[in-house]
Write a protein that binds this DNA or RNA. Structure first.
Lengths: 218, 218
DNA sequence: TAAAAAAAGAACTAAAGTAGAACATTTATA
DNA sequence: TATAAATGTTCTACTTTAGTTCTTTTTTTA
Protein backbone atom coordinates (compact mmCIF):
# COMPACT_ATOMS: atom_id res chain seq x y z
CA UNK A 1 0.00 0.00 0.00
CA UNK A 2 0.91 3.65 0.01
CA UNK A 3 3.21 5.59 2.28
CA UNK A 4 1.77 8.66 4.00
CA UNK A 5 3.51 11.08 1.61
CA UNK A 6 2.40 9.13 -1.40
CA UNK A 7 -1.14 9.12 -0.08
CA UNK A 8 -1.13 12.82 0.64
CA UNK A 9 0.15 13.60 -2.82
CA UNK A 10 -2.32 11.30 -4.49
CA UNK A 11 -5.23 12.86 -2.70
CA UNK A 12 -3.95 16.34 -3.49
CA UNK A 13 -3.69 15.53 -7.19
CA UNK A 14 -7.10 13.92 -7.22
CA UNK A 15 -8.67 16.87 -5.43
CA UNK A 16 -7.05 19.49 -7.61
CA UNK A 17 -8.14 17.78 -10.78
CA UNK A 18 -11.69 17.49 -9.51
CA UNK A 19 -11.77 21.05 -8.21
CA UNK A 20 -9.77 23.06 -10.68
CA UNK A 21 -10.03 20.79 -13.65
CA UNK A 22 -6.33 20.48 -14.27
CA UNK A 23 -3.42 18.69 -12.82
CA UNK A 24 -1.26 20.64 -10.36
CA UNK A 25 2.35 21.46 -11.21
CA UNK A 26 5.26 20.05 -9.26
CA UNK A 27 5.67 23.42 -7.58
CA UNK A 28 2.12 23.30 -6.34
CA UNK A 29 2.59 19.74 -5.18
CA UNK A 30 5.71 20.74 -3.25
CA UNK A 31 3.64 23.26 -1.35
CA UNK A 32 0.83 20.87 -0.70
CA UNK A 33 2.88 17.94 0.48
CA UNK A 34 5.54 19.95 2.27
CA UNK A 35 8.60 18.96 0.29
CA UNK A 36 11.26 21.47 -0.69
CA UNK A 37 12.48 19.86 -3.87
CA UNK A 38 10.84 18.87 -7.08
CA UNK A 39 12.89 15.72 -7.23
CA UNK A 40 11.03 14.44 -4.21
CA UNK A 41 7.73 14.95 -5.96
CA UNK A 42 9.08 13.20 -8.97
CA UNK A 43 10.10 10.19 -6.94
CA UNK A 44 6.69 10.05 -5.28
CA UNK A 45 4.94 10.21 -8.60
CA UNK A 46 7.12 7.45 -10.02
CA UNK A 47 6.01 5.31 -7.12
CA UNK A 48 2.37 6.16 -7.66
CA UNK A 49 2.72 5.24 -11.32
CA UNK A 50 4.41 1.97 -10.48
CA UNK A 51 1.65 1.08 -8.06
CA UNK A 52 -0.88 2.07 -10.69
CA UNK A 53 -2.62 4.82 -8.83
CA UNK A 54 -1.90 7.40 -11.51
CA UNK A 55 -1.11 7.38 -15.22
CA UNK A 56 1.04 9.89 -17.03
CA UNK A 57 0.91 11.04 -20.62
CA UNK A 58 4.61 11.17 -21.43
CA UNK A 59 6.18 14.45 -22.52
CA UNK A 60 3.31 16.56 -21.40
CA UNK A 61 3.15 19.04 -18.59
CA UNK A 62 0.38 18.79 -16.04
CA UNK A 63 -0.76 15.58 -17.64
CA UNK A 64 -1.39 13.22 -14.75
CA UNK A 65 -4.51 11.15 -14.37
CA UNK A 66 -5.68 9.46 -11.21
CA UNK A 67 -6.62 5.87 -11.92
CA UNK A 68 -7.81 4.87 -8.47
CA UNK A 69 -7.76 6.04 -4.89
CA UNK A 70 -7.57 3.79 -1.88
CA UNK A 71 -10.87 2.69 -0.47
CA UNK A 72 -12.45 4.77 2.21
CA UNK A 73 -14.88 3.96 4.92
CA UNK A 74 -18.15 5.84 4.77
CA UNK A 75 -17.85 8.93 6.87
CA UNK A 76 -20.51 7.93 9.39
CA UNK A 77 -18.58 4.82 10.28
CA UNK A 78 -15.51 6.89 11.04
CA UNK A 79 -17.62 9.26 13.12
CA UNK A 80 -19.11 6.36 15.00
CA UNK A 81 -15.73 4.92 15.77
CA UNK A 82 -14.57 8.28 17.04
CA UNK A 83 -17.56 8.39 19.35
CA UNK A 84 -16.75 4.98 20.70
CA UNK A 85 -13.22 6.03 21.44
CA UNK A 86 -14.40 9.19 23.12
CA UNK A 87 -16.99 7.33 25.11
CA UNK A 88 -14.45 4.86 26.34
CA UNK A 89 -12.03 7.45 27.57
CA UNK A 90 -14.55 9.97 28.83
CA UNK A 91 -14.48 10.81 32.44
CA UNK A 92 -16.91 8.50 34.10
CA UNK A 93 -16.72 5.47 36.28
CA UNK A 94 -18.51 2.18 36.08
CA UNK A 95 -20.30 1.05 39.19
CA UNK A 96 -22.40 -2.04 39.67
CA UNK A 97 -26.16 -1.72 39.74
CA UNK A 98 -27.36 -4.07 42.44
CA UNK A 99 -31.10 -3.85 42.09
CA UNK A 100 -33.86 -2.18 44.04
CA UNK A 101 -33.70 -0.96 47.56
CA UNK A 102 -36.48 -1.49 50.08
CA UNK A 103 -36.78 -4.92 48.55
CA UNK A 104 -36.14 -6.61 51.85
CA UNK A 105 -32.84 -8.27 51.07
CA UNK A 106 -29.36 -7.38 52.18
CA UNK A 107 -27.20 -5.77 49.53
CA UNK A 108 -24.56 -8.48 49.42
CA UNK A 109 -27.19 -11.04 48.68
CA UNK A 110 -28.57 -9.28 45.65
CA UNK A 111 -25.31 -8.53 43.92
CA UNK A 112 -26.39 -9.83 40.58
CA UNK A 113 -23.29 -8.29 39.12
CA UNK A 114 -22.76 -7.67 35.45
CA UNK A 115 -25.26 -4.89 35.27
CA UNK A 116 -23.20 -1.75 35.50
CA UNK A 117 -23.94 1.90 35.25
CA UNK A 118 -21.71 4.79 34.38
CA UNK A 119 -21.74 7.79 36.64
CA UNK A 120 -19.90 11.08 36.30
CA UNK A 121 -16.55 11.06 38.01
CA UNK A 122 -17.44 13.93 40.27
CA UNK A 123 -19.91 11.69 42.04
CA UNK A 124 -17.53 8.90 42.84
CA UNK A 125 -14.39 9.93 44.60
CA UNK A 126 -12.28 7.60 46.65
CA UNK A 127 -14.05 4.54 47.88
CA UNK A 128 -16.22 1.72 46.66
CA UNK A 129 -19.50 2.66 45.06
CA UNK A 130 -22.61 0.93 43.86
CA UNK A 131 -26.04 1.90 42.62
CA UNK A 132 -29.57 0.98 43.66
CA UNK A 133 -32.91 1.80 42.19
CA UNK A 134 -35.16 3.48 44.71
CA UNK A 135 -38.53 1.91 45.29
CA UNK A 136 -41.27 3.71 47.14
CA UNK A 137 -42.03 7.21 48.25
CA UNK A 138 -40.57 7.31 51.71
CA UNK A 139 -37.88 9.85 50.82
CA UNK A 140 -39.95 12.03 48.57
CA UNK A 141 -39.48 15.20 50.56
CA UNK A 142 -35.76 14.87 50.09
CA UNK A 143 -36.35 14.93 46.35
CA UNK A 144 -35.83 11.18 46.03
CA UNK A 145 -38.57 9.73 43.87
CA UNK A 146 -39.71 6.22 43.08
CA UNK A 147 -37.50 4.83 40.34
CA UNK A 148 -34.54 7.14 40.91
CA UNK A 149 -31.04 5.69 40.83
CA UNK A 150 -29.20 6.14 44.11
CA UNK A 151 -25.42 6.26 43.99
CA UNK A 152 -24.10 4.78 47.21
CA UNK A 153 -20.66 4.77 48.79
CA UNK A 154 -20.00 1.59 50.69
CA UNK A 155 -19.45 2.35 54.35
CA UNK A 156 -20.12 0.82 57.76
CA UNK A 157 -20.47 4.10 59.57
CA UNK A 158 -22.50 7.22 59.05
CA UNK A 159 -22.89 10.64 60.57
CA UNK A 160 -26.12 11.97 61.94
CA UNK A 161 -28.33 13.41 59.23
CA UNK A 162 -26.77 11.53 56.37
CA UNK A 163 -29.00 9.48 54.12
CA UNK A 164 -27.86 5.86 54.35
CA UNK A 165 -28.61 2.40 53.15
CA UNK A 166 -29.53 0.69 56.40
CA UNK A 167 -29.86 -3.04 56.84
CA UNK A 168 -32.47 -3.86 59.48
CA UNK A 169 -32.45 -7.23 61.23
CA UNK A 170 -30.01 -8.51 58.62
CA UNK A 171 -32.82 -8.82 56.15
CA UNK A 172 -34.37 -5.56 55.06
CA UNK A 173 -32.43 -2.84 53.25
CA UNK A 174 -33.84 0.65 53.28
CA UNK A 175 -32.85 4.20 52.40
CA UNK A 176 -33.36 6.60 55.29
CA UNK A 177 -31.87 9.47 57.25
CA UNK A 178 -29.54 8.14 59.95
CA UNK A 179 -29.76 9.47 63.50
CA UNK A 180 -27.89 8.00 66.40
CA UNK A 181 -29.61 8.75 69.65
CA UNK A 182 -28.43 7.79 73.11
CA UNK A 183 -29.47 4.13 73.05
CA UNK A 184 -31.26 3.94 69.77
CA UNK A 185 -30.85 4.41 66.09
CA UNK A 186 -33.57 6.42 64.38
CA UNK A 187 -34.28 5.81 60.75
CA UNK A 188 -36.15 8.85 59.53
CA UNK A 189 -38.12 8.83 56.31
CA UNK A 190 -38.63 12.10 54.45
CA UNK A 191 -42.38 11.81 54.03
CA UNK A 192 -45.02 12.88 56.49
CA UNK A 193 -47.00 9.71 55.83
CA UNK A 194 -44.20 7.47 57.10
CA UNK A 195 -43.06 7.06 60.66
CA UNK A 196 -39.63 7.16 62.16
CA UNK A 197 -38.34 3.71 63.07
CA UNK A 198 -36.56 3.44 66.37
CA UNK A 199 -34.22 0.51 66.59
CA UNK A 200 -31.67 -0.91 68.93
CA UNK A 201 -28.12 -0.56 67.54
CA UNK A 202 -27.87 -4.34 67.31
CA UNK A 203 -30.85 -4.47 64.98
CA UNK A 204 -29.44 -2.20 62.32
CA UNK A 205 -26.24 -1.49 60.48
CA UNK A 206 -25.10 0.92 57.81
CA UNK A 207 -24.27 -0.47 54.39
CA UNK A 208 -23.58 2.71 52.56
CA UNK A 209 -24.03 6.44 52.34
CA UNK A 210 -26.05 8.20 49.67
CA UNK A 211 -23.74 10.23 47.46
CA UNK A 212 -25.86 10.98 44.46
CA UNK A 213 -29.20 10.71 42.72
CA UNK A 214 -29.78 10.22 39.03
CA UNK A 215 -33.17 10.31 37.37
CA UNK A 216 -34.19 9.82 33.77
CA UNK A 217 -37.25 11.29 32.11
CA UNK A 218 -38.78 9.76 29.03
CA UNK B 1 -7.35 -20.32 11.90
CA UNK B 2 -5.60 -17.25 13.15
CA UNK B 3 -4.25 -16.61 16.60
CA UNK B 4 -5.71 -13.60 18.42
CA UNK B 5 -2.61 -11.54 17.78
CA UNK B 6 -2.59 -12.42 14.13
CA UNK B 7 -6.23 -11.56 13.86
CA UNK B 8 -5.84 -8.28 15.66
CA UNK B 9 -2.92 -7.29 13.47
CA UNK B 10 -4.71 -8.26 10.29
CA UNK B 11 -7.74 -6.20 11.21
CA UNK B 12 -5.57 -3.28 12.19
CA UNK B 13 -3.79 -3.31 8.85
CA UNK B 14 -7.06 -3.63 6.98
CA UNK B 15 -8.61 -0.79 8.95
CA UNK B 16 -5.66 1.53 8.59
CA UNK B 17 -5.56 1.08 4.84
CA UNK B 18 -9.26 1.72 4.55
CA UNK B 19 -9.22 4.63 6.92
CA UNK B 20 -5.99 6.41 6.24
CA UNK B 21 -5.31 5.11 2.78
CA UNK B 22 -1.84 3.93 3.56
CA UNK B 23 -0.29 0.92 5.16
CA UNK B 24 0.85 1.27 8.77
CA UNK B 25 4.51 0.92 9.67
CA UNK B 26 5.83 -1.76 12.00
CA UNK B 27 6.11 0.84 14.73
CA UNK B 28 2.44 1.67 14.40
CA UNK B 29 1.54 -1.99 14.40
CA UNK B 30 3.52 -2.51 17.59
CA UNK B 31 1.36 0.10 19.25
CA UNK B 32 -1.85 -1.29 17.92
CA UNK B 33 -1.29 -4.92 18.77
CA UNK B 34 0.55 -4.31 22.00
CA UNK B 35 3.87 -5.87 21.17
CA UNK B 36 7.09 -4.16 22.16
CA UNK B 37 9.37 -5.43 19.45
CA UNK B 38 9.34 -5.11 15.71
CA UNK B 39 10.54 -8.67 15.34
CA UNK B 40 7.29 -9.87 16.80
CA UNK B 41 5.35 -7.96 14.18
CA UNK B 42 7.63 -9.39 11.54
CA UNK B 43 6.88 -12.91 12.66
CA UNK B 44 3.15 -12.26 12.68
CA UNK B 45 3.25 -10.82 9.20
CA UNK B 46 5.25 -13.75 7.89
CA UNK B 47 2.50 -15.99 9.22
CA UNK B 48 -0.19 -13.87 7.63
CA UNK B 49 1.62 -14.00 4.31
CA UNK B 50 2.06 -17.74 4.52
CA UNK B 51 -1.61 -18.21 5.22
CA UNK B 52 -2.36 -15.84 2.34
CA UNK B 53 -4.22 -13.21 4.27
CA UNK B 54 -1.88 -10.46 3.12
CA UNK B 55 0.44 -9.91 0.21
CA UNK B 56 3.65 -7.95 0.23
CA UNK B 57 5.32 -6.07 -2.57
CA UNK B 58 8.92 -7.19 -2.06
CA UNK B 59 11.57 -4.63 -1.27
CA UNK B 60 9.10 -1.90 -0.55
CA UNK B 61 8.25 -0.21 2.71
CA UNK B 62 4.65 0.11 3.79
CA UNK B 63 3.59 -2.12 0.94
CA UNK B 64 1.21 -4.62 2.45
CA UNK B 65 -2.12 -5.47 0.97
CA UNK B 66 -4.89 -7.39 2.65
CA UNK B 67 -6.12 -10.22 0.44
CA UNK B 68 -8.85 -11.57 2.64
CA UNK B 69 -10.12 -11.40 6.17
CA UNK B 70 -11.28 -14.41 8.14
CA UNK B 71 -14.95 -15.12 8.44
CA UNK B 72 -14.70 -16.20 12.04
CA UNK B 73 -13.13 -14.22 14.78
CA UNK B 74 -11.05 -15.86 17.49
CA UNK B 75 -13.08 -16.28 20.62
CA UNK B 76 -11.19 -13.80 22.78
CA UNK B 77 -11.66 -11.10 20.16
CA UNK B 78 -15.38 -11.66 20.29
CA UNK B 79 -15.26 -11.36 24.05
CA UNK B 80 -13.34 -8.12 23.80
CA UNK B 81 -15.79 -6.63 21.36
CA UNK B 82 -18.67 -7.56 23.60
CA UNK B 83 -16.98 -5.69 26.41
CA UNK B 84 -16.54 -2.62 24.27
CA UNK B 85 -20.18 -2.71 23.28
CA UNK B 86 -21.22 -3.05 26.86
CA UNK B 87 -18.95 -0.24 27.90
CA UNK B 88 -20.40 1.94 25.18
CA UNK B 89 -23.94 1.20 26.24
CA UNK B 90 -23.32 2.06 29.81
CA UNK B 91 -20.73 4.68 29.17
CA UNK B 92 -21.06 8.41 29.29
CA UNK B 93 -21.07 11.51 27.14
CA UNK B 94 -19.83 15.02 27.65
CA UNK B 95 -22.38 17.81 27.59
CA UNK B 96 -21.86 21.51 28.22
CA UNK B 97 -22.87 22.99 31.55
CA UNK B 98 -24.42 26.35 30.80
CA UNK B 99 -25.01 27.76 34.25
CA UNK B 100 -28.01 28.22 36.46
CA UNK B 101 -31.59 28.24 35.41
CA UNK B 102 -34.09 30.79 36.69
CA UNK B 103 -31.24 33.25 36.40
CA UNK B 104 -33.19 35.45 34.04
CA UNK B 105 -31.09 35.10 30.93
CA UNK B 106 -31.80 33.16 27.77
CA UNK B 107 -29.78 29.99 27.39
CA UNK B 108 -27.99 31.08 24.26
CA UNK B 109 -26.71 34.14 26.03
CA UNK B 110 -25.17 32.27 28.90
CA UNK B 111 -23.33 29.63 26.95
CA UNK B 112 -20.02 30.11 28.68
CA UNK B 113 -18.90 26.92 27.10
CA UNK B 114 -15.88 24.95 28.17
CA UNK B 115 -17.44 23.75 31.37
CA UNK B 116 -18.63 20.29 30.57
CA UNK B 117 -20.15 17.51 32.52
CA UNK B 118 -20.19 13.82 31.86
CA UNK B 119 -23.53 12.10 31.99
CA UNK B 120 -24.39 8.44 31.55
CA UNK B 121 -25.11 7.56 27.96
CA UNK B 122 -28.51 6.20 28.73
CA UNK B 123 -29.60 9.76 29.49
CA UNK B 124 -28.49 11.27 26.23
CA UNK B 125 -29.79 9.54 23.18
CA UNK B 126 -30.11 11.25 19.81
CA UNK B 127 -30.13 15.00 19.93
CA UNK B 128 -28.27 17.92 21.43
CA UNK B 129 -28.02 18.08 25.17
CA UNK B 130 -26.87 20.53 27.79
CA UNK B 131 -26.96 20.84 31.54
CA UNK B 132 -28.19 23.53 33.90
CA UNK B 133 -28.00 23.88 37.61
CA UNK B 134 -31.42 24.29 39.15
CA UNK B 135 -31.95 27.30 41.35
CA UNK B 136 -34.97 27.64 43.60
CA UNK B 137 -37.64 25.42 45.00
CA UNK B 138 -40.41 25.77 42.47
CA UNK B 139 -40.18 22.17 41.26
CA UNK B 140 -39.62 20.56 44.61
CA UNK B 141 -42.69 18.33 44.47
CA UNK B 142 -41.34 16.79 41.31
CA UNK B 143 -38.24 15.83 43.24
CA UNK B 144 -36.17 18.62 41.72
CA UNK B 145 -34.24 20.35 44.45
CA UNK B 146 -32.22 23.52 44.61
CA UNK B 147 -28.75 22.82 43.26
CA UNK B 148 -29.65 19.74 41.24
CA UNK B 149 -28.19 19.36 37.76
CA UNK B 150 -30.85 19.22 35.07
CA UNK B 151 -29.97 17.39 31.86
CA UNK B 152 -31.83 19.08 29.03
CA UNK B 153 -32.44 18.05 25.44
CA UNK B 154 -32.54 21.02 23.13
CA UNK B 155 -35.95 21.34 21.51
CA UNK B 156 -38.35 24.01 20.35
CA UNK B 157 -41.45 22.03 20.99
CA UNK B 158 -42.85 20.15 23.94
CA UNK B 159 -45.76 17.95 24.80
CA UNK B 160 -48.26 18.72 27.51
CA UNK B 161 -47.03 17.64 30.89
CA UNK B 162 -43.36 17.59 30.04
CA UNK B 163 -40.98 19.57 32.17
CA UNK B 164 -39.32 22.16 29.95
CA UNK B 165 -36.88 25.00 29.95
CA UNK B 166 -39.14 27.88 28.96
CA UNK B 167 -37.92 31.28 27.90
CA UNK B 168 -40.39 33.99 28.92
CA UNK B 169 -40.40 37.35 27.16
CA UNK B 170 -37.04 36.45 25.63
CA UNK B 171 -35.35 37.20 28.89
CA UNK B 172 -36.20 34.82 31.70
CA UNK B 173 -35.43 31.11 31.55
CA UNK B 174 -37.33 28.85 33.89
CA UNK B 175 -37.95 25.16 34.50
CA UNK B 176 -41.65 24.32 34.61
CA UNK B 177 -44.30 21.87 33.49
CA UNK B 178 -45.55 22.83 30.02
CA UNK B 179 -49.29 22.93 29.29
CA UNK B 180 -50.74 24.26 26.10
CA UNK B 181 -54.31 25.44 26.60
CA UNK B 182 -56.61 26.84 23.95
CA UNK B 183 -55.14 30.32 23.71
CA UNK B 184 -52.58 30.23 26.45
CA UNK B 185 -49.51 28.49 27.64
CA UNK B 186 -49.49 27.49 31.27
CA UNK B 187 -46.21 27.13 33.08
CA UNK B 188 -46.92 25.04 36.15
CA UNK B 189 -44.53 24.87 39.07
CA UNK B 190 -44.51 21.79 41.27
CA UNK B 191 -44.81 23.55 44.57
CA UNK B 192 -48.00 24.64 46.30
CA UNK B 193 -46.41 27.95 47.25
CA UNK B 194 -45.95 28.98 43.63
CA UNK B 195 -48.58 29.97 41.14
CA UNK B 196 -49.20 28.85 37.62
CA UNK B 197 -48.15 31.45 35.06
CA UNK B 198 -50.57 31.95 32.20
CA UNK B 199 -48.90 33.41 29.13
CA UNK B 200 -49.77 34.22 25.58
CA UNK B 201 -47.96 31.88 23.16
CA UNK B 202 -46.00 34.85 21.80
CA UNK B 203 -44.56 35.53 25.22
CA UNK B 204 -42.97 32.16 25.76
CA UNK B 205 -41.01 29.55 23.88
CA UNK B 206 -39.50 26.17 24.65
CA UNK B 207 -35.74 25.87 24.77
CA UNK B 208 -35.41 22.30 25.90
CA UNK B 209 -37.01 19.32 27.56
CA UNK B 210 -35.91 17.88 30.88
CA UNK B 211 -34.42 14.45 30.36
CA UNK B 212 -32.59 13.81 33.58
CA UNK B 213 -31.70 14.96 37.05
CA UNK B 214 -28.40 14.43 38.81
CA UNK B 215 -27.73 15.33 42.39
CA UNK B 216 -24.60 15.06 44.49
CA UNK B 217 -24.47 14.70 48.25
CA UNK B 218 -21.44 15.70 50.29
C1' DT C 1 11.22 -27.83 36.19
C1' DA C 2 12.69 -28.39 31.59
C1' DA C 3 11.43 -27.76 26.86
C1' DA C 4 8.96 -24.95 23.73
C1' DA C 5 6.92 -20.80 22.38
C1' DA C 6 6.55 -15.96 22.51
C1' DA C 7 8.42 -11.56 23.17
C1' DA C 8 12.08 -8.14 23.61
C1' DG C 9 16.17 -6.00 22.11
C1' DA C 10 20.32 -4.94 19.44
C1' DA C 11 22.56 -4.65 15.18
C1' DC C 12 22.17 -4.42 10.60
C1' DT C 13 20.25 -3.65 5.73
C1' DA C 14 17.11 -1.43 2.83
C1' DA C 15 13.80 1.89 1.41
C1' DA C 16 11.79 6.41 1.64
C1' DG C 17 12.30 11.05 1.89
C1' DT C 18 15.14 15.61 1.53
C1' DA C 19 17.72 18.93 -0.86
C1' DG C 20 19.85 21.39 -4.49
C1' DA C 21 21.61 21.88 -8.90
C1' DA C 22 21.93 21.03 -13.69
C1' DC C 23 19.59 20.07 -17.52
C1' DA C 24 15.63 19.03 -20.79
C1' DT C 25 11.22 19.94 -22.48
C1' DT C 26 6.90 22.38 -23.12
C1' DT C 27 4.16 26.53 -23.34
C1' DA C 28 3.16 31.30 -23.82
C1' DT C 29 4.04 35.42 -26.06
C1' DA C 30 6.90 39.29 -27.89
C1' DT D 1 9.44 31.61 -34.72
C1' DA D 2 12.71 32.83 -31.31
C1' DT D 3 12.96 33.14 -26.69
C1' DA D 4 11.83 33.56 -21.85
C1' DA D 5 9.30 31.49 -18.38
C1' DA D 6 7.31 27.57 -16.62
C1' DT D 7 7.42 22.88 -16.01
C1' DG D 8 9.41 18.34 -15.71
C1' DT D 9 13.54 15.03 -15.37
C1' DT D 10 17.75 13.27 -13.68
C1' DC D 11 21.72 13.13 -10.79
C1' DT D 12 24.38 13.09 -6.44
C1' DA D 13 24.72 13.09 -1.63
C1' DC D 14 22.67 12.77 2.55
C1' DT D 15 19.13 11.93 6.61
C1' DT D 16 15.43 9.59 8.39
C1' DT D 17 12.30 5.94 8.61
C1' DA D 18 11.24 1.20 7.82
C1' DG D 19 12.14 -3.71 7.67
C1' DT D 20 15.06 -7.99 8.65
C1' DT D 21 17.79 -11.06 11.20
C1' DC D 22 19.78 -12.88 15.04
C1' DT D 23 20.51 -13.40 20.10
C1' DT D 24 18.78 -13.08 24.66
C1' DT D 25 15.11 -13.00 27.92
C1' DT D 26 10.64 -14.04 29.51
C1' DT D 27 6.51 -16.59 29.65
C1' DT D 28 3.80 -20.82 28.85
C1' DT D 29 2.77 -25.24 29.33
C1' DA D 30 3.37 -30.09 29.45
Amino acid sequence: MLTPKQYKLLMFIDNTIKEKGCCPSYEEMKEAVGIKSKSGIHALIEELIEREFVRKIPHKARALEVIKTPRFKPRDIIEEEKKIKLALQSSSAQIPLYGKIAAGTPIEAIAYENETLSVPFNMVERGEFYALQVEGESMIEAGIMDGDIAVIKRSNVAENGQIVVALVEESEATLKVWRKKKDEIWLEPCNKDYEIRRLHPSQVRVQGILKGIMRKYH
